[in-house]
Every structure is written in C-alpha cells, then in structure tokens.
Design a protein around this nucleic acid. Structure first.
Lengths: 268, 268
DNA sequence: TCATCTTGTATACAACGTATCAGTAGTAGA
DNA sequence: TCTACTACTGATACGTTGTATACAAGATGA
C-alpha cells in the first residue's frame, strides 16, 4: 500500500499479463456467453461471477452493460429469440401462426432454461420477441382481423405454446432425473411421489392415463394435437364472423417489418 | 459456560417466556404462513429466515418439515390449490373444463406469486393440483374419450389458462409499477422501453393494437375469448370423431374421486 | 502535455440457503 | 420420583450470491 502513488515498478509492468486491449466486452458477447453456459448447465449456473470468469473478466465488469441480473436474463431471452426462424410471409394466417408455434417450441427445446424463467421474464418486451408477436399480428391484420381480436388470437396461441412446451420440458427433466428408459416399465420405476399419489386411489382417470396412455412418450403428437384444437377454434370464429374492414389502410404492409436490421443482440 | 451441567436456575426457569407447548409447527401452518407473506409482499419476500420470524421460530426450525426451499414452494402451491373450487360434477365436459379454467385464473389472480414461479414448480404433481387434472380427465373419460386424447385436451386448456393468466399478471405488474391510470393516455405515459420499440417503426401491427385496441384494459374479455376458441376447437374434434368405447368399464365413477379427504395441506 | 471519458478491477458487505451440533421439553420405564 | 430417551427447537457458522463503491489504466481530444 506504500508505493501506491509511485506507480508500478518496471518489473511489475513487465509482469502485467496483457496491456488489456480495450473493449473486450459487449452486450452481444455477454449474452452469447451466458446463453452458452445456460444451455450447457442450466439456469442455476448463471451467476454474475461465473459469467465473469467465463468472459475472462472481473466479477463486476459486466455491470457496465447490464444493470443487474434481471437485465442479463432479458438480454439472454432476446438473444435466443433472434434464432427463431419466422415464416416467410405469403402463407395464410393459420399456417403462419402454426409455424411460429412450432418454431417457438423448437427454440425452447433448444434452450431448456427458457422454461425455467419466471413467467414474467419470458414475456418481457424485447425487440426480437416483439418481432414474433408482430409477425402473428400482421398475418391476422392482413386478413382484416381487428386489432383486439388479433391480439386475443395471437396471445391464445402463444400462451398455449409456452405453457405446453414448458410442461413438456418440466416432464422431460423429471424423467431425466429419474433415469427412466423409453419403455413401458413406467409404473414400477415411477417417481415415489407419483406412486404414492396413484396408490391413494383418488385419481383413477389420471392413473388410467399413466397405465393405458399410448402417446405418453410422444410429445410431438401431444403438442400438435393441442395446437390443431386451438387453431381450429380460431378458424371457426374467423369464418363465421366476417372480417371487418379488410385491407384497411391502417394495415401496413409487413414487407418492411419484421426482423431485418435487428437490434444489437443478434446472431450467435 | 461454568454452570452448564447444573441446568437452569429457578429464576431462569421462571423467566423463560413460555414452556413452549410442543408441536408449534406443522406443514399446514408453514404453508399458510408462507402463502400469507407471498400474497402480501411477493415471492421475493419468501426467505427461510423471514418465514421463521413470521412463525416465531428459529431460522432452521422449518427444515424439520420441508427439505428445503423448493419443497416449501411446492407446499405453498399445493396449499393454495386446495382453495380452487371444482365444479360439482354433473355438467358436461365443456362446462367442467371451462369452470376449471376460470377458477384457476381466479386463483392465480388471488395469488400473484403463482405466476412468478419457475414454470416447472407450477406443474409439480402435488395432491391438490393433481385433483384438478383428475377432475378434467374424469369429465372427458365420462364422455368416452380415450386417455391420450383426454390428456391432450386437459393439457391444452390448462396450458392456455396458465400461460394467458401469467401474461396478464406480468402486464398488470408492469402497469402498476409504471403507475398507469385506466384511461387512454397510454402512449404518452408509456414505459420507455415500449416507446422505443414502437418508434422504431418495425412493429406496425403491434403499434396499431396499442393505439386502436379497445379491449386492452379488459383482461376478462381477453381470457374468455381465447378460452372459447380453445373449447370450440376441442368440441369440433369431439363430435366429428365419435367417442370410442363409451362407458368403458375402465372408466371409474368419479363420485368417489376428487377432493374429499384431502391431503395434509388444506384450508387456510 | 494534460484533463476527461470510458472501461475494467479490487474490495467489501449484507443477505441468502443450509450443515452441524447443542440444548430442552415431554414421554416412558424403573 | 428419578432417569434415560426421543423429538423437537435453537444457535452458530460457512460458503455463495447480487451488487455498491471507489479506484486505476487505456483512450481521446485540446
């Protein structure tokens, strides 16, 4: 502490690892690194300190770019939503919404930690997430659907998608933690909690599904079945009540919208 | 440290506050207390220490009853699901599923922290949560729906319900944090984040909703509209493909099922 | 050359979840 | 009535976490 104001000696200077090329950090790099860690080890591995070591930087360094951990999580969400491939644009509303739903599910399965986020964080209004909503709303507006209905429809599909996929991921992780195989010895190697529940006899219909369900191991079928229900229900209303003010001039062309020229956080 | 083995003196004994009536704790009391705190101050207020002081007990005391904080959260979830009023049983599947969805939404709005839980915890298989699934599955089985389809239907509705209500709660909290009033000065007092997004011009359909949406402040309408879509879509499939093996003997009566004689965590 | 801005670093702290162990009130045998 | 036992609660402590604050070193512009 004595030689503080004298500056470092020559030897100290020589020993200093690298003259730290400035600007080693950026929101992009931070997001990409955090996402890589979360993909590999789950959301619990995301720690400001862990992130710092992964970036090769002091624990507090990232705070120049994110105001705190919540910010970091938002950044991560936006970063991965840039991956989501949006349908090209000429298909009808139904095909558009369907493809967005399937893409979203694939995205969540690729980044399981998305399902571990508190419900609020998943819904944060980040640029790339908003682009997805925009695509859905635009497809509906093009059909002449009024804004309120369009939002209700889009919210319905995306709620279904998020909820269903979240449940699928939770189930997967329980099964992985339990070391289940792929076959039908479900009951014998059941999680103790579940065994207890079923044996109370209070859940016969649930039990029947566990024993007799054939599609238990087919999450694709489950997801797509439910998705068709939802889309069918929407379609019924769309055709029964004729579209209001089709080609309203307030409906912008969406060629100019969407994802080209995206926000900072992009690519991977 | 000297008089350790002599035991407390008479005066010490007299001074001891209460001779601690045994069994001050129980899972019920723990759950009820934790729920009360979370209801009043949000999930972040739930701390093992805070819980302990609220119970008037040492920080580690609760660990005799829950193995850790995750356990505590599960206990809380189960505790509040005991509140959920299940439909009485004679209505058709559609009315049953509809009422369960509405009840679930009301429950979540009463306990906003349910939406803050990581997606996995909300789906934990607790007795009272399973009772809700059971009720849906039973209503469908009674109609002769096979177990796989019944589960797909039930999962669809509950995914929709959880996702939609979670989004509603997140929105509410953003609005509350921003101090919005009830009227149409939406854009001027908009959250800065949202203002920025809209001004990029990349989200015209989204922007149109913000400016022209009439039902923005009507979450009941939004929820029920989407719910009808979902139920309509299910109904279409149910009638088009005739039920298989109606009154199959594997379909138990559900008079005996459901929620009477519930698990430990009950009431409030 | 010097002041200023930017960017990463060092240190520190309060709060958290929880392991461990000690104490103590009730119960059961003698 | 005494003693041993058991079930429960309390105290203490440790490692980790998010983050406030103050500082230093490279970059920049006069």
């Amino acid at each position: 502490m004595a030689a503080r104001k004298d500056g470092p000696s020559l030897w100290e200077r020589l020993e200093r690892p690298t003259p730290t090329p400035r600007q080693t950090l950026s929101p992009r790099r931070i997001a990409a690194t955090a996402v890589a860690v979360a993909d590999a080890e789950g959301l619990d591995a995301i720690t400001m300190r862990r992130l710092a070591t992964e970036l090769g930087v002091a624990p507090m360094a990232a705070y120049r770019y994110v105001s705190g951990k919540d910010d970091l999580l938002e950044l991560m969400v936006d970063h991965v939503y840039a991956e989501l491939e949006l349908p090209s644009g000429t298909a009808g509303w139904r095909e558009t919404l369907r493809e967005i739903a399937l893409s979203t599910r694939r995205l969540m399965l690729r980044h399981l930690w998305l399902a571990q986020l508190p419900a609020g964080a998943t819904l944060a209004l980040t640029p790339n997430r908003t682009a997805v909503s925009e695509r859905s709303l635009a497809a509906l507006a093009e059909q002449g659907v009024d804004p309120d209905t369009a939002m209700a429809v889009a919210a319905t599909v995306s709620s279904y998608t998020g909820g269903m996929t979240g449940a699928e991921i939770a189930m997967r992780q329980v099964m992985a933690g339990q070391g289940w195989s792929d076959e039908e010895e479900v009951y014998t190697s059941l999680a103790p909690q579940l065994t207890y529940l079923l044996d109370t006899g209070r859940y016969p219909a649930f039990k029947r599904y566990i024993f007799e369900g054939r599609r238990k191991k087919d999450p694709d079928w489950q997801f797509e079945t439910g998705l068709e229900y939802v889309l069918d229900g929407i379609a019924a209303r769309m055709t029964s009540s004729p579209p209001m003010s089709p080609r309203d001039d307030a409906v912008r062309r969406e060629d100019e919208t969407g994802r080209q020229d995206r926000h900072e956080t992009e690519g991977s």
